[in-house]
Design a protein around this nucleic acid. Structure first.
Length: 243
DNA sequence: TTGCATGATTCCTG
DNA sequence: CAGGAATCATGCAA
């Protein structure tokens, strides 16, 4: 009966439900707007419900066939009972045999449904972790923003959307990228120096704007606000630069 | 095949 | 909940 449990867990059998607690729900963790994966997820859900539908219609078909066949056999037995005596035991035995046959067929159906679900999952959900490097365009856009806002590399939600659109990636990918970039840049600035120079030369424009804005915003940097962290980031940069 | 680069995930903090 | 830090897993050049 493990198959039953699995199908139930996958939402194939049992009542209709959306958004299970499985890996599908994890996709939107840090800085992840759930909408980012909605395309993928709706696709996944569509396929799952397709499997579900097939499973249920097949199941129904089998059940119907089973009962039809049973009544058919019963009729035959009744016919035969005219020519020879048939005990109720014998009838019961026949019925049991028929039900046994159909239940093995059902088992096979469940098994193949399970397989289909597994394949679907590996296709969609595990693909999450399949890493693809961003396009040149995307990294270009992201780096440009990062190095031109080096004093405050924290794009606003709007800026992230803009970058996402320009780079052809999702907003949460932008968030991931900036998260990785900040930490890795801070870890060893030396490695990024060349890159920094390239992009600084490219757009040495609004640095002053950002500084002005940053100063204005951080005038009362409440320890709890994001401004506080940003200020810390700046200071740490200054410290590591003087070493 | 190996080592590093890099995108994604997880855990934790304020 | 956004971001930092550590870690995982893959891509890719050497």
């Amino acid at each position: 009966m493990r198959l039953d449990n699995m199908l139930l867990a996958e939402g194939v059998s049992g009542p209709e439900k959306r958004g299970r607690g499985g890996p599908a729900a994890i996709a939107a963790t840090s800085g992840g707007c759930p909408n980012d994966n909605s395309i993928e997820h709706s696709d996944y859900r569509a396929k799952l419900s397709q499997i579900r539908q097939i499973y249920h219609s097949e199941l129904e078909k089998y059940e119907q066939a089973c009962s039809e066949f049973t009544t058919h056999v019963m009729n035959l037995l009744r016919e035969q009972s005219r020519t020879r005596p048939i005990s109720p035991k014998e009838i019961e035995r026949m019925v049991n045999i028929i039900h046994g046959k159909f239940s093995t067929i059902q088992m096979q159906l469940k098994q193949s449904t399970c397989e289909a679900v597994m394949i679907l999952r590996s296709r969609f959900l595990d693909a999450r972790r399949k890493r693809r490097n961003f396009s040149k365009q995307a990294t270009e856009v992201l780096n440009e923003y990062f190095y031109s806002h080096l004093s405050n590399p924290y794009p606003s939600e709007e800026a992230k959307e803009e970058l996402a659109k320009k780079g052809g990636i999702t907003v949460s990918q932008v968030s991931n990228w900036f998260g990785n970039k900040r930490i890795r840049y801070k870890k060893n600035m030396g490695k990024f120096q060349e890159e920094a120079n390239i992009y600084a030369a490219k757009t040495a424009v609004d640095a002053t704007n950002v500084v002005a804005q940053g100063n204005q915003a951080s005038s009362p940097p409440t320890p709890n606000s994001g401004e506080y962290r940003k200020a810390v980031f700046k200071m740490e940069l200054v410290f590591s630069a003087t070493e």
